[in-house]
Simulated assay, not measured.
Amino acid sequence: MPSAIHLVPLDTTTKHHDHDHHQIVIGVDGHAEFEIEGLGGSIAPLSGCIVPASHVHYYEGVGDNRHLILNLPPTSFPLAGAQQELSRLFDAPLFFSLDEALTRYLDFLVQELARLQEGAPQPLMHQDMLASTFLSCLNVRMQPSRQHSSGLKRIDLDALDRYIQRHLSQRLNVAHLARQACLSEAHFNDCFRRQTGITPYQYLLTRRLRAARHLLLSTRLPLSEIADQTGFSSQSALSHAFRRSFGHPPSALRRPTPPTILTSDG
């Protein structure tokens, strides 16, 4: 499946779904609200978000709006072969802003899409090439030159766990963890992946879900309060993440066990 670029308005009622391709959403006109597996943020013109494949996300356009949507299957040209390194952009959900140079490229993309909609001929892989250029430029800005593995710092996971536990209700993100480790976010991501085999976002989400599971089993707190105490932006965000991780909704842990019926031999 090739990549695809669309310029569309987002529905002004809240929708949610997930899909098996990566996605980048960029504001052109108007605003939108996004929540991606518990990470919430706003998109204004010249800002956007990264939605990794299989991540449940809620979204809602605000008033009149237009957003540029890049749909990127993991095996599409912009993420395959020699460009496979660009797939690291989708390690975790992320909100970002465009600098002046990327703003000019966004203007070009919008004009190019308008030209194609007017019936201009579209060469084979044209949208793939447009998406590939954008991803490469975004990657340069978000993933500064990486240090060789010999220079990667070993992260104190015990200290990081204590920090997460103390601040879990504060909507922690990867940038907070990187600052705690005294590393740039890009270097922290590299160190963490090499040391643990997973991304910092996956690690943080696991800690949130374990804490939520403990509170479900050991307290009678309402689910909305548990979501707040474990850093999820809403009760629904916790429920979706919980179901994806454990295969059942949080409420399943609180359903009473049916009583055992004893029978006599007469």
Results as ranks from 00 to 15, higher is better:
191 C>K: 04
191 C>P: 01
191 C>N: 07
192 F>W: 07
193 R>Y: 03
193 R>T: 12
193 R>S: 02
193 R>G: 04
193 R>F: 01
194 R>M: 01
194 R>L: 02
194 R>N: 06
194 R>K: 13
195 Q>H: 08
195 Q>M: 01
195 Q>C: 05
196 T>M: 03
196 T>F: 00
196 T>H: 06
197 G>Y: 01
198 I>W: 00
198 I>R: 08
198 I>L: 09
199 T>W: 04
199 T>N: 07
200 P>W: 10
200 P>V: 08
200 P>S: 07
200 P>I: 11
201 Y>F: 13
201 Y>M: 14
202 Q>Y: 11
202 Q>D: 07
202 Q>R: 13
202 Q>C: 04
202 Q>A: 12
202 Q>T: 10
202 Q>E: 07
203 Y>M: 04
203 Y>K: 09
203 Y>P: 00
204 L>N: 05
204 L>M: 10
204 L>C: 10
204 L>F: 03
204 L>H: 03
204 L>A: 01
205 L>E: 08
205 L>D: 06
205 L>N: 15
205 L>I: 03
206 T>Y: 05
206 T>I: 01
206 T>Q: 11
207 R>I: 04
207 R>F: 09
207 R>V: 07
208 R>M: 08
208 R>K: 12
208 R>F: 10
208 R>W: 06
209 L>H: 02
209 L>T: 01
209 L>M: 00
209 L>Q: 00
210 R>H: 05
210 R>V: 05
210 R>P: 02
210 R>S: 15
211 A>C: 08
211 A>R: 15
211 A>E: 15
211 A>L: 00
212 A>K: 00
213 R>Q: 10
213 R>P: 03
213 R>Y: 11
213 R>D: 03
214 H>E: 08
214 H>S: 09
215 L>Q: 10
215 L>G: 13
216 L>P: 13
216 L>E: 04
216 L>W: 07
217 L>D: 11
217 L>H: 15
217 L>R: 08
217 L>K: 09
217 L>Q: 14
218 S>N: 10
218 S>I: 02
218 S>H: 11
219 T>Q: 09
219 T>Y: 05
219 T>H: 07
219 T>E: 15
220 R>C: 02
220 R>T: 06
220 R>S: 09
221 L>V: 12
221 L>E: 10
221 L>Q: 13
222 P>Y: 14
222 P>F: 05
222 P>W: 10
223 L>E: 02
